[in-house]
Each structure stands twice: as structure tokens, then as C-alpha cells.
């Protein structure tokens, strides 16, 4: 009896001991802060004269009336809706080009991928100079063609789009890699069959390649959307969210509230919203993946 029982019992203990250190660390810096965020969002900020007090949903009411919050949220939406589809489309084009047997293939691949390994801070510095009025590269090119000087990042109408262009440049090469991996797994017989049937290459791409790449597109899309909510390094360098919050994103607004205005309880409230958004993306991802499996 004892002999049969012992190994199973050891399995449980060994398994738990192995995962415990990592699970403890992850919960300390992920699960615990999520709970703690919700908790702190229900309290007012303590001041020197007044200790922090439980105020229920007061912070959330304030958030609903906060114009900057809505501005930042809509900025983030525009930012995601522009960067995600465009960088995915460019990534797919890059992968299709590189997948052919073209001359200098590995050099071209390197060129596409280089922005991925660069720090966002370095990239932001370089592009900041491109956008500088008068001295910057873009303005110099524009004036050659008789255009006027623009204050690209200083103009509320263009600041966000300037960031979008830069992020597309930075991220496309990263997503290209996943398409390349997927393309290499497609069977060459399929292509031959397509060519024998006399289908044009656009038709072949639309009806065969693109649908087969769908899982990759989904994976890349989720990655890109999450990135568009969690990467705000360039804002610190290029615009500081300005002018007048025209280019601010949600995580940057959280950072500002916590570390510039020192209103950590409002920052906690905003973080709860950000976590909710990411949770919704996760749920959508699961639902879509489930559906795809059911159809097959």
C-alpha cells in the first residue's frame, strides 16, 4: 500500500516545489499589484493634513468626468487602429518579398529587422530630429520641394500621426519574422498545384496563402494591440504627451499621474481600466481562437 502511494505523493510535492519560486515572484509583481490597484483606487490620496480615506467609487466618477482621460483613450484607439493594421500589412509584404528567391535576400531581411533590436529611446531620439522644424530632415526635404516648414510634433493635429509613422517603422520588421516562419511551413506542393490550375498569383495569395496565414495574423494582431497599450517610451522623449495631450496614451497618462502629479490613487484607478482593456483583448483572443477550432 505504502509503495503504491508514495510516488504519487512525491509527484505533488516535487511539482509544487519546482514551480513555487517562479509562481511566488509572478504573483508578487502581477497578481498582487492587480488586487492592490483595485484596492487603492477606492481610496482618496492622503495629504499631510488628511489621511487617505475610503471613498468608494468616487475616483471612478471623477474618471468618467475627466476630459483628459477620454482624450487619451481615444488617442490610444486611433493609435492602435493605425499602427496595428498598417504594420501587419507591411510585415506581410516584407515576408512575401523575402520568401522569394531574390538577390541579397539576407541583407534585405537584416534591413527590415534592424529597427526591432534598437531601443525605443534611441529610435525616438533619431526621429525627434527628423521632425524638428527647419533643421530636421523632413523639413529640409520639404523646403527643397518648395514646401513650408512644419512644426510636426508641436502641432496637435499631426503629433500623434508622427508617432504612428515611427512605430510602424519600428515594429513591422518584428512582425515580419512571424510571417516568415509561417510561410516556410506552407507546403510547396500547394503552390505547384495552384500554378498548374493556372490561378494568378494575386488570386492564389487571396484564396490560399492569406487564409493559411490566418493563425499567424491573429497572433501578430494580439501582440501588436497589446504593444500599442504598453509601449510609451517614445512619448517621454518626443512629445511628453503634448501638445495639450494630443499625443498622450493611456499608460503615459498613468505614469504622469503617478510620478509627475503624485496622485497615485487616480493612477491606480486608471491602471484598473488598462488592465480591464487587456483582459478584454485576452477574452476576445480566446473566443476567436475557439471559434476557429470549431470550424475546422
Amino acid at each position: 500500500m505504502k509503495l503504491i502511494f508514495q510516488p504519487r505523493y512525491w509527484n505533488h510535492i516535487n511539482g509544487w516545489l519546482l514551480v513555487l519560486p517562479a509562481v511566488f515572484m509572478i504573483s508578487l509583481f502581477t497578481h498582487f499589484p492587480i488586487g492592490s490597484n483595485v484596492f487603492h483606487s477606492l481610496f482618496s490620496m492622503g495629504t499631510a493634513t488628511r489621511p487617505e480615506a475610503f471613498i468608494g467609487l468616487e475616483n471612478y466618477k471623477y474618471l468618467m468626468d475627466d476630459d483628459i482621460f477620454w482624450k487619451v483613450l481615444s488617442n490610444n484607439l486611433v493609435y492602435s487602429l493605425c499602427t496595428v493594421p498598417i504594420s501587419i500589412a507591411i510585415a506581410l509584404c516584407m515576408a512575401l518579398l523575402i520568401n522569394r528567391n531574390i538577390r541579397g535576400r539576407s541583407l534585405v531581411r537584416m534591413a527590415f529587422f534592424t529597427p526591432t533590436v534598437l531601443p525605443m529611446i534611441a529610435v525616438a531620439n533619431i526621429w525627434l530630429f527628423f521632425y524638428t522644424p527647419e533643421y530636421g530632415l523632413f523639413d529640409q526635404i520639404f523646403t527643397v520641394f518648395g514646401g513650408d516648414s512644419h512644426n510636426w510634433l508641436g502641432n496637435p493635429d499631426s503629433a500623434l500621426y508622427c508617432l504612428i509613422v515611427m512605430v510602424i517603422w519600428k515594429e513591422s520588421g518584428f512582425f515580419m519574422v512571424f510571417y516568415l516562419a509561417a510561410l516556410q511551413q506552407l507546403s510547396p506542393e500547394l503552390k505547384e498545384a495552384g500554378l498548374v490550375e493556372g490561378s494568378g498569383s494575386w488570386y492564389y495569395f487571396r484564396r490560399v496563402t492569406f487564409p493559411l496565414l490566418m493563425p499567424t495574423t491573429l497572433f501578430v494582431m494580439v501582440n501588436a494591440v497589446v504593444n500599442s497599450f504598453k509601449l510609451v517610451d517614445h512619448l517621454v522623449i518626443m512629445t511628453k504627451g503634448g501638445p495639450d495631450n494630443a499625443s498622450s496614451l493611456l499608460l503615459y497618462y498613468i505614469y504622469e499621474n503617478a510620478f509627475s502629479f503624485w496622485d497615485t490613487s487616480y493612477a491606480a484607478t486608471l491602471t484598473v481600466i488598462l488592465v480591464l482593456i487587456l483582459a478584454i483583448i485576452t477574452v476576445i483572443q480566446f473566443v476567436v481562437v475557439e471559434k476557429r477550432i470549431h470550424y475546422q
Binding site: F29, Y255, V275, L278
Partner: peptide, 15 residues
């Protein structure tokens, strides 16, 4: 994978 530590920077700073 979804909620990276930098998203929770306010509370992680506190910790």
C-alpha cells in the same frame, strides 16, 4: 504574458 510588470508600475513601485 498579457499584463506585463510595467503596466502595473504604480503598485510595483510601492512594493
Amino acid at each position: 504574458l498579457m499584463i506585463m510588470p510595467e503596466i502595473l508600475l504604480v503598485e510595483n513601485y510601492r512594493t
